[in-house]
């Protein structure tokens, strides 16, 4: 089966999966969380991955985010086959090609916003001066230029998520992977965060957004619905931007 390409991007493929499967064992039972997903996402696309709980959405996201390796099938990220890499190589891929935005922000509570944003660059081995420059630029971009010295507990939920977005962008990743980024926010703040994400996409950032809220999914240009570990529907959003 040919990978589906419903792309709205500029033609360069960022994600390509072929027969991607993930099984794991829970006691004596084998859970087939992802059972053969073929998907192609082009550069510049904004794709919402949707599905009820148990649809394999989380497992699929972990595979796409290189936090996990597939049981079977192949996965190319940004032109590199990453489905058979070692843990440390996956860590390098995550560092270089992927920016994560989590539902619970996952910032280091004792570090300043600036230090949180610098973190991926530390593992990339960037010099201290360049780290500071780049982290500052990204924080300014998400509108937190005046909050760089604050620690997460001193920031609001929306501000924390913006720090997380700045952190995700600091390595200029091929893919921004957002897992329920508005799950812990009120609707007004959610709209603010989604506007930032939408703007990033319009500036050319490839984005994969995992959500179970159809309101949020509507921001994307394309929706992929999973069910029982398979792609159930894959279509372009008619209305872009609400």
């Amino acid at each position: 089966m040919e990978p589906q390409g419903v792309g709205t991007g500029n033609g360069k493929v960022v994600i390509r999966t072929q027969g991607l499967q993930k099984h794991y064992h829970l006691g004596a039972e084998t859970v087939r969380a992802v059972q053969g997903v073929d998907l192609e996402i082009a550069a510049g696309e904004f794709v919402a991955i949707m599905g009820p709980s148990g649809s394999g959405k989380s497992t699929f996201m972990n595979l796409v985010g290189c936090l996990d390796t597939p049981t079977a099938g192949e996965y190319w990220l940004n032109g590199n086959k990453v489905s058979e890499l070692s843990d440390d190589d996956l860590a390098r891929v995550r560092n270089r090609d992927i920016g994560f935005v989590f539902q619970t922000f996952n910032l280091l509570p004792r570090a300043t916003a600036l230090h949180n944003v610098e973190l991926p660059l530390i593992y990339a081995g960037t010099s201290a001066r360049e780290r500071k420059e780049r982290a500052t630029a990204k924080l300014v971009r998400v509108g937190l230029g005046d909050r760089m010295g604050h620690k997460p507990p001193e920031l609001s939920g929306g501000q924390r998520q913006r720090v997380a977005i700045a952190r995700a962008l600091v390595n200029d990743p091929a893919l921004l992977l957002a897992d329920e980024p508005t799950g812990n926010l009120d609707s007004e703040t959610s709209a603010e965060i989604m506007d930032i994400i939408l703007e990033l996409n319009r500036a050319g950032q490839t984005i994969v957004l995992v959500t179970h809220e159809s309101d949020i999914a509507r921001y994307a240009t394309r929706q992929v619905h999973l069910k029982d570990g398979r792609v159930e529907r894959d279509f372009l959003n008619e209305m872009v931007g609400v």
Binding site: A91, N95, R96, L108, L119, P120
Partner: peptide, 15 residues
Amino acid sequence: REIGVRKALGATKTD
């Protein structure tokens, strides 16, 4: 959790 975050952001086992 901090270890998880660091790993997600690209920390290797050695780091």
